[in-house]
Amino acid sequence: MAARIEHLVTSGTFSLDGGTWDVDNNVWIVGDDTEAIVIDAAHDAEAIARAVGDRRLTAIVCTHAHNDHIDAAPELAARTGAPVLLHPDDLPLWKQTHPDRAPDAELTDGQGLSVAGIELTVLHTPGHAPGAVCLYGPALEALFSGDTLFAGGPGATGRSYSHFPTIIDSIRDRLLTLPGDTVVHTGHGDTTTIAAEAPHLQEWIDRGF
């Protein structure tokens, strides 16, 4: 069976810089009936493991290391044996949530992750966090953007480890160059497309989104 995208929403909290907020997170599962990759193991390892089922989980990919995107990753890894993958620039954030458990392997820009006969390419897109990445799957016409790009604009850059000019550079140079019909599967909220977001880049810059 061909590779497909499955979607799960989990709920919990996001904490940084002394504040805590309730959040709903998108968890994305890419695979077929045999194997899968989880993108952002947020909040509920049991629910994610149920969604994966008896498939072989080949990787738990972290788009970045804010706690709401990684809090369930170690437990999901323990349940499934899958490695946790993170860009090394986000290790300081990771250690705030999991000081005693390191990721299993590093993500690097341009790296390919194979699952169910397709390849997802890692795009390093810093700005929301130093080690933020997106995953591009041309065979699925899909981009998994984490918190780098949302329906309506860039991810937040008002807290520690974030930088607005950098996220704008990442979006302009790495994401808006993708085909317009690429569907953007975000870390929170609704999906969008590259074509829907591209015309608004200058607006975001002008208002310092």
Results as ranks from 00 to 15, higher is better:
Met1Pro: 02
Ala2Lys: 13
Glu6Asn: 14
Leu8Val: 11
Val9Met: 12
Gly12Tyr: 11
Gly18Ser: 09
Thr20Phe: 06
Val23Phe: 07
Val23Ile: 14
Asp24Pro: 15
Trp28Met: 08
Val30Pro: 08
Asp33Gln: 12
Thr34Gln: 14
Val38His: 03
Ala41Glu: 02
Ala42His: 04
Ala42Leu: 10
Ala45Gly: 02
Ala45Arg: 00
Ala45Gln: 01
Ala47Asp: 05
Ile48Cys: 06
Arg50Tyr: 00
Ala51Phe: 00
Val52Leu: 00
Gly53Lys: 00
Asp54Asn: 09
Leu57Trp: 05
Ala59Arg: 07
Val61Ser: 07
Thr63Lys: 10
His64Arg: 05
Asn67Arg: 11
Asp71Phe: 09
Asp71Arg: 15
Asp71Asn: 12
Ala72Arg: 01
Pro74Ile: 01
Glu75Val: 10
Glu75Met: 02
Leu76Asn: 07
Ala77Asp: 03
Arg79Tyr: 01
Ala82Pro: 00
Pro83Arg: 06
Leu86Asn: 04
Leu86Gly: 04
His87Val: 03
Asp89Arg: 12
Asp89Met: 07
Leu91Asn: 03
Leu91Trp: 11
Trp94Thr: 00
Lys95Trp: 15
Arg101Ala: 01
Ala102Cys: 10
Ala102His: 09
Asp104Pro: 01
Asp104Asn: 10
Glu106Tyr: 15
Thr108Met: 13
Gly110Val: 00
Gly110Leu: 07
Gln111Asp: 04
Gln111Gly: 11
Gly112Leu: 15
Gly112Asp: 13
Gly117His: 06
Gly117Glu: 09
Gly117Val: 04
Gly117Ser: 08
Ile118Gln: 13
Glu119Thr: 13
Glu119Ala: 12
Val122Trp: 05
His124Tyr: 02
His124Ile: 00
Pro126Ala: 10
Pro126Glu: 01
Gly127Ser: 09
Pro130Gln: 05
Pro130His: 07
Pro130Met: 02
Gly131Pro: 00
Gly131Ser: 03
Gly131Ala: 09
Ala132Val: 08
Ala132Phe: 08
Leu135His: 13
Ala142Gln: 03
Ala142Arg: 05
Leu143Ile: 02
Ser145Met: 03
Gly146Pro: 09
Gly146Met: 03
Gly146Lys: 04
Thr148Asn: 09
Phe150Glu: 04
Ala151Asp: 11
Gly152Trp: 04
Gly152Phe: 13
Ala156Lys: 15
Ser162Cys: 07
Ile168His: 10
Ile168Asp: 04
Asp169Met: 02
Arg172Val: 08
Asp173Tyr: 06
Arg174Gly: 09
Leu176Val: 05
Leu176Asn: 05
Leu176Ala: 11
Leu178Ile: 06
Leu178Asn: 04
Pro179Lys: 13
Thr182Lys: 01
Thr186Val: 08
Gly187Met: 00
His188Ala: 14
Asp190Leu: 12
Thr192Ser: 04
Thr193Arg: 05
Ala195Cys: 03
Ala195Glu: 02
Ala195Phe: 01
Ala195Tyr: 01
Glu197Asp: 08
His200Cys: 13
His200Trp: 09
Glu203Asn: 15
Trp204His: 07
Trp204Thr: 14
Asp206His: 03
